[in-house]
Computed example of a mutant assay.
Amino acid sequence: MSDEPEQLEMWCAGEDWCPITTTANLVGKKWHPVIVHRLLQNGPSGFNALKEEVDGVSSKVLSDSLSDLEQKRLVNRDIVSEKPVRVEYSLTRIGKSLRPVIFAMRDWGAEYLAPAEDERSSVA
C-alpha cells in the first residue's frame, strides 16, 4: 500500500478554491461530521450503536447518510454475520484522515457555541 493519500475526483479540480469545496462536499451535510466523529471516537460500530451515539437522527436519515458516506469512500460497510444479518460500519483510510478536520470543527464549535438556555439560567 502506498503512503500517498488516495485522490478524490472533483468537478472543480484545478481551481484554487477546490480543496475547500472538496472538504465541504464530504462533511457538509448535517449528520456526516457527527457520524465520522463517532466512528473516530468509538471505532467500528453497528447501525443501532451508531443511532444511539448520534442522538436525534432518524433511522432513515442515518441509513441515507451512511450510504452517502460509503459512496464518498469515507465509510466501509461490512457484513459481520448472515443470520441474523449484522452490519458494521468503519472508517476508510480517507475517513480516518478527516480526524484533524473533525476535531478542529468540534473545538471551534465548543469555543463559539452559546450555552443552552438551561445552562444560562442556572449560571444567573
Rank of each mutant, 00 (worst) to 15 (best):
V80I: 12
E82M: 06
R38Q: 15
A49L: 12
H32N: 11
R73D: 07
E15M: 04
V54K: 05
V61W: 13
D68E: 01
I79C: 05
N42G: 07
H32Q: 10
R106N: 09
I94V: 15
A104D: 05
G95D: 08
K60A: 01
M10P: 00
Y112V: 05
P115D: 03
G46M: 05
K29D: 14
L91D: 09
L50E: 03
L69C: 08
A13K: 12
R77N: 05
L74N: 14
A110S: 11
P100Q: 11
Y112H: 08
L74A: 15
D78R: 00
A116W: 05
D64E: 06
S45G: 06
D3P: 03
E117I: 00
P44L: 08
D78Y: 01
L26Y: 10
D16E: 07
D107Y: 11
K30G: 09
I20T: 12
F103H: 08
L74S: 14
T22I: 02
K51P: 04
V85G: 01
K51Y: 00
E52I: 10
I20W: 07
L66Y: 10
D64R: 06
D3Q: 14
Q41S: 09
V123H: 10
E111T: 02
G28C: 08
K72S: 13
T22M: 08
L74I: 15
V80Y: 15
R73E: 12
L39C: 03
I35R: 10
E82S: 04
R73W: 08
V36G: 12
K29G: 12
V27E: 08
R99P: 00
P19T: 01
L98N: 10
V57K: 05
Q71F: 01
V36S: 13
I35K: 13
R38E: 12
I35A: 06
T92F: 09
H37E: 09
L40E: 00
